[in-house]
Design a protein around this nucleic acid. Structure first.
Lengths: 348, 348
DNA sequence: TTGAAAGCGGTACCAA
DNA sequence: TTGGTACCGCTTTCAA
């Protein structure tokens, strides 16, 4: 039990050369059915599992892909995106005998180094690029390193293969929802400008608002955190007369929306009676809070699965086309409702 | 740029044998200072990074350790433990050039298979065993496989190296806190009995309650989820007269405590005026909710770091002693307060 | 101290 | 169709 079964053992038992074992077990042609059968039998008898290390060295592959999570160490802790994203990745990796190497880098610079060393010692065959920033330095890096990569929710002109989930439609649905409820004065809590997805959501919201002939009263920059939502609510609502406040707010992610809700409540505003609030993501937590959070539901799990498929295909030398998964769409729950009556009159 | 720099290149440039390069670069004796200097210089000039694959095959090591997360696919999503735990692991792995391989198995059986295949193809040199169950099948498995492993929060008689964070003290602190606030009738929402940490918390609570001469009114089994907390609150509070209710409740983790809080609120109970509620973990979310959650703060990050250190040492052939990190302790926040006045009178 | 060479466990090419 | 063998890139004896 101490010494492992190698391909040599299998060859010996089947009475063939190791090259035949290799061919047979990898379903390559050039082995007679009879020999193949004997080899498979021998392998099974011996409980042979090819060593990843041997294969790795010879095949010049790591059979692993990498995900580097950056930002604060508590990302995984408070941001449900990665959990679901990783879950999706796993569903694809596992059947194809690949493994996921997860690394965390607190600061952007450190993150780059992680990618660099993953590539340098060839620990991975490719990487995911989630949470893309504007002019993200990881892009030229992987290009320079010749490291296969897949971008997640990238811009249209992204130079690498990417998987995207449309955000525009969901935002339009939400604004239409607001409009139908009589809201005229909307506001937005964005994410940090350096993130592409923050910008995408902002642009889509502004467009939709204009399209419906509504007013974009206020835009406050948040940071995708709960605390950021609290701060944004303070900035947007505190000390303002009802007539001066927006009646419907979109926060760029659910976490900040939930913070926003909490602060709004502390300021004496009832949601959705005095104010409608919506988030973006569709995290589970949004169904926990009261009122439950209206949101634009995304599919990080699917995004992960598709990204993994694209990455493995790319590693296999296939040409991969960008993929658009089903767009995010509105999920109406308890935090949005009709515009306060006072505001109906005040319009126009 | 296309072909990588190997040890052969370095040897050639330094004008020495590859064995000398290996010795020199790994700080092994038997190389003269002068030669060593030349080799280091050459390596640097060429930007040599040893191939993990070559090392791996030759050294019979994967230079990676594995973490298999089981239970529902949404674990990482809603349970902040793993994010912090992984963060802690990383801080130790990275400087020692190890990587973390993360896998997810939804069902326990599947999880076992993951461990099995990780061991079979030698993708990892060791594994973490978090969230131990009673008679956890992973334990005999890793023993049989001869796979180094470290248990997290294991029982005292655990047969493998383990890192633990004391839970008893924190629970005692909490019960003392309850007692000081005048509470006499306590209750507990546990986690599933099959988890060791659920049982540990239950036992500690019962002991502490007895020690203070208080009453353990009610014990309801939860499932460590928000929904479980909601259900537990329903079972414990709904349709009961104030005199029949406990006045202070410990939920076995924060997430369920937060669900408990929400449901209590819906049932018209004010926390902490009508009822005190505490959790266990110290997750960030507990500071978001209103009232903020009194809890017993744990240190998953530290647990991860220590577990990683122990695992790597074990892999290096060192004998590792079990480690106890600073025990979890009480964090008083807003969800606990004085016993309702009606109950003060009713005691005795 | 240095260098040559034998593995580690596979893959893949080439002759037989 | 088979078997032999040269790698893959490093570590580790063992002579020189």
């Amino acid at each position: 039990m101490n010494t492992r079964v190698t391909i040599v053992d299998v060859a010996a038992r089947a009475g063939v050369a190791i090259s035949s074992v290799s061919s047979a077990l990898n379903n390559r042609p050039g082995v007679s059915d009879e020999t193949r059968r004997r080899i498979v039998q021998a392998a099974q008898d011996l409980g042979f599992v090819p060593s990843l290390r041997g294969r790795s060295l010879s095949a010049k592959r790591a059979f692993a892909v990498g995900l580097v999570v950056h930002r604060d160490p508590s990302v995984l802790e408070s941001d449900p995106f990665f959990g679901a994203f990783i879950g999706g990745i796993e569903t694809v990796l596992d059947p194809r005998d690949y493994a996921l190497i997860l690394q965390m880098g607190s600061e952007p610079v450190e993150t780059l180094d992680r990618y660099r060393s993953l590539a340098a010692n060839r620990r991975v065959d490719g990487v995911f690029l989630p949470e893309l920033g504007v002019d993200d330095p990881r892009v030229p890096l992987v290009q320079e390193l010749g490291l296969p990569a897949v971008g997640v929710n990238a811009e249209p002109d992204f130079p690498l293969p990417a998987v995207r989930q449309g955000h525009v439609e969901g935002v339009h649905e939400l604004v239409a929802h607001f409009a139908a409820l009589g809201h005229r004065r909307l506001a937005l809590v964005t994410g940090p400008h350096e993130f592409i997805h923050a910008r995408q959501r902002r642009v889509a919201f502004a467009e939709a608002v204009a399209l419906h002939g509504l007013r974009l009263d206020d835009v406050v920059e948040g940071d995708f955190t709960y605390e950021g939502g609290i701060a944004a609510a303070g900035a947007m609502l505190e000390g303002r007369a009802p007539q001066d406040r927006p009646t419907a707010v979109l926060c760029s992610n659910d976490l900040s929306a939930i913070g926003f809700l909490a602060r709004a409540g502390e300021l004496g505003l009832r949601v959705p009676d005095d104010l409608s609030v919506a988030g973006f993501d569709g995290i589970r937590l949004g169904t926990y809070v009261r009122p439950t959070l209206t949101t634009i539901g995304t599919a990080p799990r699917l995004l992960g699965a598709e990204a993994a498929r694209m990455l493995l295909d790319q590693i296999d030398g296939l040409t991969v086309d960008d993929v658009d998964i089903e767009h995010a769409s509105l999920v109406v729950r308890g935090s949005t409702g009709p515009v306060p009556s006072g505001h109906l009159a005040s319009v126009r």
